[in-house]
Structure formats: C-alpha cells, structure tokens
Design a protein around this nucleic acid. Structure first.
Length: 116
RNA sequence: CAGGUCGGUUGGGCAGUCGCGGUUCCGCAUUGUCGGGAUCGAGGAAAGUCCGCACUCCAUGGAGCACGGCGUCGGAUAGCAACCGGGGCGGGGAUAGCGUCGAGAGGCGUGAACCUGCCGGACAAGGGCCACAGAAACAAACAGCCCCGCAUCCGAAAGGAUGCCGGGGUCAUGGUGAAAAGGUGGUGUAAGAGACCACCGGCGUUUGCAGUAAUGCAGGCGGCCAGGUAACCCCCGCCGGGAGCAAGGCCAAGCAGGGGCGAAAUCGUCUUCGGACGAUGGGAGACUGCUCGUCUCCGCAUAGCCCCGGGUAGGCUGCAACGAGCAACGCGGUGACGCGUUGCCCAGAGAGAUGACUGCACAGAUGGAUCGCUCGAAAGGGUGUCCAUUGGACAGAAUGCGGCUUAUAGACCGGCCUGAGGG
RNA sequence: GCCCCCAUCGUCUAGUGGCCCAGGACGAAGCCCUCUCAAGGCUUAAACCGGGAUUCGAAUUCCCGUGGGGGCA
C-alpha cells in the first residue's frame, strides 16, 4: 500500500475515531468516515499493545495492509478508514484477513455495486 | 570408548510471482500523490536500559564542602565497577573418582576439570547495634568446684558433717545461644587457668626460594590469642559538574502582549544643569544543593538569560556517514586485545519500510514397512534404506558505538578432567 | 526513543534488620442476637511480585529480572 493511500496525521486519526461509524469483527475493527476534501480513499492501520510485542503488531498491520491493497482502486472515493487489529489476528492467515475485511466493507456499504 | 564439564560458529537455502521503503538514472501532447530501469534494505540479542563513551546544550567547566559511586593483584581499552588473566576464603561438583577397612550394606580419609558468591580498614581512631534465651554479648560468677571465717552437731583429741550465713579464688564442668577468652595430652594447683611444656591450628613479624604483584612453599622469632557487623554510621584511597537526539539548530504557523517575584543608597569627577561616567554598597539572574570566585543586567520603578500561565504537535536539519567502520588473511598475546596487508562503502523509516503466496531440495521430529547389516540365549537394542505426516526458536533498527544482563528450536566444531581397554 | 517512580490479604493501607508463621479498616465466611433483614457482638480464612547475595537473622539492605504507573518535543 503506497503512502498516498495512507492516513497519517494525528488529527485525522482523532477525527475519524470520534465521528466515524465503526463495524466490528473478531479479527479486526473498521472505522469509516466520509471526507469530501480527500481525492481518494485513505486508510490508517492500528495495533494496540494488547495485540502483542513489536513483531506481532507489525505482522498484524502488514496483514491488514496487504488485504486492503486490492480494494484501494475500486472503492468509492472520499472516505477515511481506520483498521484496528484485534489479538486474534496474530494467528490468522492472509485468507482469513481478506474474508474478514470483505465482510466489513460490505457491511459498511463501501463496495461498488458489481462486487457486492 | 564411557561419563562429566566448558567454549566457539550458525540462527535457515534456492527459484518464481505480487507488494513496500531509501538512493540514483531515464522518459513525457499527461511535470505528478506519474511511469520505467538499476541498486540497497534488521539482530545476536535490534530487547532490558544495568554500566561506560562519542556528540549536543547549559556563556566558561573554576575551587572547596556536601552528595553519590568504587575498593584483592596484574593487564586490556578512547573509556568503563561490570571486560581478560591470576590470588585468597567459602558453597557446589561429590551418592564422581582414588586409597583404605569391611563378607556385604556401608564407614573413614582424600578429593579433578568445571560452575558460582565474596574481596580496603573492626589491632590508625571513634560511635551504634547484637532480638529471644542466658549469670554474662565484650564483660561476667547462676549452678558447680575449692579455700578461709562464723554458727550448730558428732568426737577425749586430731578432725569430720551441715548451713535461705559471710568473705574470697576459679571457668576445667553444666545449661543458653548464630556467637561465650584456641584444640589434644601432660606438668602444676586448695581448686583451676597458655600459668608452664610438647605437638597441631590461627595471628603478627622476619629470612630464603618461586612470582611483575596479590600470594604460595619452607624455616626462625614473638605476645601466647585480640567476638561479629562497615551491601550500619564512619575512617583511608581513587573517581564523578548537570541534562539528555523528544538533546540541540533553522524555518513556517499559532497564541499572546496576561499574572507573580523584585532593592538602598552614598561619594567623587565633568557639566550645555537635562544628565553622563567611575568607585563602594545593594538587587535580579547564570554556573542545577551550599559557600567562594567569575560573568551579564538594573539604578527608584523598571531591568531580568527568573517563575507561573497561554499557544504550536507542521517541515528541514541533527541523521545515515571514511567511522574507536565492516570483511578476509597473516603475525604477536593464555586471553581481553593489538599490529599489518588487501578489499568494501554496507538499512535509514516517521501511524513508522524488509512481507505474502507457490514450487524444489535440506537439517530435525513422529509413525510405519520388517527389507539389509550388527549385538544378544531370548525379550529387545543400535544402524542403514524406503514411505507418510510434520517441520526451522527468541524476536523488529529509530543518533551511533563498547561491555553486561535477559529470551532462544535446533545444527556443526573444538578444549579440559576422571575412568577403562589397546598400541 | 529518553528519563523517573511504585509493588504487602479480594480492596485501601501500617510496618527503625529481631517484639512479625506481618497489624488495622472495608469486604468475605461461620456463629450469636431478631419473627425476618439491617445494625451490633464474637470467631475464622486470607498477603510481603520472582530469584540470588550480605547477615546469626531480610517485608526492610545490595544486585538481577517481572509487572504496572508517570513525565519529556
């Protein structure tokens, strides 16, 4: 996932967490907020201390970024998303993460019509 | 070969596809959050932050005190208390092994490699503490033993016995305790005691030998014996200014022009009579606890590099390297480490890059085949081959280095000690 | 990333190296009281974060680790 699709500013994270809508899954939590000023989708990835050590946190974030990658070009633009890793994600495979993320994106009605 | 023990190396390989970050080059009807190429991209602990440095800031890093740290000897280093090699005293190794006694069980003596803890001073001086128990915790007499006196009794006397009696000697014996003025044997004595003697143990001192030294071994002499605790205060010696890359520098933006602290003047010279300069004294601040010393500012209502409050959470730099640099080889050293030659330029993010999938081999583990070799009477064991399943730990750089500590599946290599057999 | 601090029953805490197999309060359990509950009374259980060192003796002193908490642009 290239940097231009990433959410990085601290204030952006705070805004999305405060007023965005959240969707939960045992592996991952999705927080979404519409943002007209942004040209494309921006995604932030987070893993708290409860996820594990530095190795586990990095792996969880990599899995989420890799699972999100195919959706970046097709998703409706103007959305800021945050993906929060849960402890069970450490033992999940890439396929598990993909299906969990697909499930969440559909529930948030972010997928284009032909994919859903 | 068996058993024990210690150290070192490694920390997964190859290929393909997709993806991420840095550097650099090229391209463009599209100069961008563009496209393409080349190249580089985690560790031995990157971790804990326990020590030590580099570097930066505190104007300079000055003296003394306070405070803190360290403390056997020698070495290594830019530096370190922690690293390396020795020494001493403990604990383990040790139900090893060896010797000896024994029918045996086992007893006694001695006990390697190696691991591990501690290390100035308690005789240079001083203070404190040592609960409970115990008579007494650094000096002491509870019981006991012994002597003398007195009283009573027995006795003709000599003398003997007894004592809620008195005075003294003594620590051998008893009990307490973690610890009670060396141990054994003798001499000695009223009873005893290093009071004296022999041997042993310990301390001090001295000579010789070995060693750079700590120290060890052997001998002589001496008082004959001095409790423990300094990871309690303390004394002696040595070392240390403080903070830390969120240090620090630059730019942009933003909030403000808020509150607190706050002194004392005197004299001289010049004067255009407003004042200026100098000296003494004072105040604020810096040197991060105090004093001195040094420096900056102020001068009668304000200065201040002071304190509080308020604001910013963006970018560039520090910061990605010619360095206490890395690799290979050689030499010196037991080793920490040093020297030389050659080659190399080797991660640099910023919500934080090194991953995913597939295939192929390879260590290893488990199960099976009962096929081969081998040990065995057998049960069974060892090893090879084939098949299946499984399968690679701990863990992620954030200014950089040296050491330590902690976590770590396995694989490979080597040293030392003890024992057995063979040459 | 860097720098500090803390750890004692379930919770909050006290505790000069020995008087501590660690005291108190709340809570818990049992009993008494009451027609029942509450209150009250009595009783009981329950802890020094782990390991090593110093010491005759460690919750306390020293070292190493573990787990929490806080501050710094």
């Amino acid at each position: 996932m290239q940097r231009r699709f990433r959410l990085s500013r601290s204030e952006d994270f705070k805004r999305v967490r405060r007023i965005g809508k959240s969707y939960a899954h045992p592996l991952v939590v999705l927080v979404a907020q519409a943002n007209e000023t942004s040209a494309n989708v921006r995604v932030g990835v987070a893993a708290g201390k409860s996820t594990g050590g530095a190795v586990d946190r990095n792996r969880a974030k990599r899995l989420l970024r890799e699972a999100m990658r195919p959706h970046l070009e097709t998703l409706a633009s103007g959305w800021d998303l945050i993906l929060i890793a849960r402890p069970a994600l450490v033992t999940a495979t890439l396929e598990d993460t993909r299906s969990a993320l697909f499930n969440l994106l559909r529930r948030a009605k972010l997928l284009p019509a032909d994919e859903s």
